[in-house]
Amino acid sequence: MNANSKDLSAGLLFIAIAALFAFQTRDLDMGTPLRLGPGAFPLLLAGVLALLGLIIVLQAFRNPVTHSMTIPWRGIVLIVLAPIVFGLTVRGLGLVASIALVVLISAYASRRMHLKLATLLTIGLTLFCVLVFSIGLGLPLRLVGSWLRGLG
């Protein structure tokens, strides 16, 4: 059977998320009409979401189109990695090294990136961030983190 692949995946995604939330409400109290419990409203919403997902899935079969998808895997991995690395290192390495890592990692998400540009971009943006956020706005972030203290 043919189906609109975008609608089908959207519908299934919604149903899956609804199921996840509904499953999580199993330990929550539903309460009484006077004092609705913590589980009542989420379960209602999960039900509505599953229903909407189902409608989207059914609609997908009415209008069968297959879409070709280009997925930028390298981009996804690197772009998603950048904020995670920042979160993991900002306290330890400090703002300077951590922001340089973010810029460097995300820069390589583009296929057009090359070493010279990446280096320039990293130095330039790191400098800019330190000037604006740390010196200009006075964000309470240490420039050099605890991992690097006492080294060298």
Binding site: P83, S106, A107, A109, L125, F128, C129
Partner: peptide, 10 residues
């Protein structure tokens, strides 16, 4: 976009 990511992260 690296700039956007850097600013957003901070």
């Amino acid at each position: 976009f690296p700039a956007i990511l850097a600013f957003s992260a901070i």
